[in-house]
Simulated scan of single mutants.
Amino acid sequence: MYQQQYWVELQNLKAHVYYLELYQLGSESVERWISIILAIASSASIGGWVIWKDYAFVWAFFIMITQVISVVYKFLPFKARIKPLATAGVELSLLADDAEKGWFDVAQGNLTEREINDKRFAIRKKKSAVMKSAFSGMVFPENEKLMAKAEDQMRKYFKSHYQELQDER
């Protein structure tokens, strides 16, 4: 029973590592596209002002909108999460590697049930500490589609590395 609980904890940890990576990639992509759009809009609006003098009001409005977006953009929550995502992702990945290394002793029966339980809760405690340290005071929403994708990547990982266990469970 405790071996199974450790295995589930290991899988959950690995899924969260993938989730943070996917979330970071998505956030960086959004940030990149907003920056590109703002750069193009700013350049085009200046050039458009000269070319389309008859529509000066439209171009002035366009410039105003891009300026508002560029100011608001700095305060969007995804932007503030990018750096903590990178930090937490690396730390959780290292923790997942340690937990996976510990799986050997758990699977071989080298540990008592109490030791397995203690190792499982130590993993959980370290995971909470990493998340609290990286995202202190920040709400981190769950994206169901990303979590499903992360869980799929986790299953693929464990299927390729622990085929014998996947067949049994």
Score class of each variant (00 low, 15 high):
Y2D: 12
Y6S: 00
V8M: 04
V8L: 04
V8T: 11
L10E: 00
V17N: 02
Y18N: 04
E21V: 02
E21S: 06
Y23N: 13
G26C: 13
G26H: 15
S27A: 05
S27N: 09
S29M: 06
V30K: 15
E31R: 11
R32G: 07
W33C: 06
I34N: 01
S35W: 01
I37G: 05
I37D: 10
I40G: 04
A41F: 07
S42H: 15
A44S: 09
A44G: 06
A44R: 02
A44I: 07
G48H: 09
W49D: 15
W49N: 14
V50C: 02
V50F: 10
V50Q: 04
V50R: 08
I51F: 05
K53I: 11
Y55W: 13
F57C: 10
V58A: 13
V58C: 06
W59L: 10
A60Q: 13
F61A: 07
F61L: 07
F62W: 13
I69A: 04
V71I: 14
V72F: 14
K74A: 11
F75H: 14
K79I: 08
I82C: 02
I82T: 03
K83H: 12
K83C: 05
P84Q: 09
L85T: 08
A86N: 14
A86G: 12
E91D: 09
L92E: 05
S93K: 14
S93Y: 13
A99K: 00
K101Q: 14
F104Y: 12
F104V: 13
D105V: 04
A107W: 04
G109E: 03
L111T: 03
L111M: 09
T112M: 03
T112W: 01
E113Q: 11
R114F: 10
R114I: 11
N117C: 12
N117F: 08
D118A: 12
R120N: 02
I123M: 00
R124H: 06
R124S: 06
K125L: 06
V130N: 00
M131G: 01
M131C: 02
V139P: 03
F140E: 15
P141W: 01
E142A: 10
L146H: 13
L146N: 12
L146S: 13
L146T: 13
M147D: 10
A148F: 01
A148H: 07
D152K: 11
D152P: 02
D152T: 10
Q153G: 07
M154L: 09
R155V: 08
R155P: 05
K156C: 07
K156E: 12
Y157H: 11
Y157G: 02
K159N: 14
H161I: 02
Y162N: 00
L165R: 06
E168G: 00
R169G: 01
R169K: 11
R169I: 09
